[in-house]
């Protein structure tokens, strides 16, 4: 079997934390525990590589395909490592109407992070997410989970540039 599924290179303390979490999670059935387990794993490891997904599948006795189906469905979950600053641009209905796609394009361009891969300097990754429930502040962007409201393309550019400056200082 391919080394893609090797768990040895992972921080074993974190793996233990994940296993304990899954072991103690009270659920009606294993499927119900899947999203919490994935959430926990992404919090611990930053992203969900194939090996980790398979590990969770085995722990919960679910087919790997189903786990991968869930992971690839939700924009929240990432199968590739994220940048130090993970930028999520909401493209839900309200944000879309208020120009989210301009914000998204600008973010990708200035950060240099396209598709799912992070920018070359490892600082940024940019993805789009569905409504995050802050429509009153549309268009909305989150950076490492922190919400920034009423952000237009110009604001987006400013934020990224100043982050770069601080980081490179």
């Amino acid at each position: 079997m391919s080394s893609l599924f090797d768990m040895e290179s992972f921080d074993q303390d974190k793996v233990q934390l994940l296993d304990d979490y899954i072991g103690n999670y009270v659920a009606q059935n294993n499927l119900e525990a899947l999203i919490p387990a994935l959430y926990k794993a992404q919090t611990l490891f930053g992203y969900l590589p194939a090996a980790l997904q398979r590990h969770i599948a085995e722990k919960l006795d679910l087919p790997s395909a189903h786990v991968n189906g869930v992971v690839s469905f939700y924009a929240y979950f990432s199968e590739v490592p994220k940048g130090k600053y993970a930028i999520s641009v909401c493209t839900g209905t309200a944000c879309h109407v208020k120009g989210a796609s301009d914000v998204l394009n600008k973010a990708r361009e200035v950060a240099g992070a396209h598709g799912e891969t992070m920018s070359e300097d490892g600082l940024f990754s940019v993805n789009d997410v569905r409504c995050i429930g802050a429509c009153g502040l549309a268009p909305v962007v989150t950076i490492n989970g922190k919400v920034h409201g009423k952000i237009d393309a110009k604001d987006m550019e400013k934020i990224i540039r100043s982050t770069k400056e601080t980081e490179n200082a």
Binding site: A50, A65, H66, N68, S72
Partner: peptide, 18 residues
């Protein structure tokens, strides 16, 4: 259980894990 819908929207396809 080797098949699952992967991804979302227009990108979705029924495929194998990873």
């Amino acid at each position: 259980g080797v098949l699952s819908p992967l991804k979302r929207g227009f990108d979705v396809s029924v495929g194998t894990a990873f």
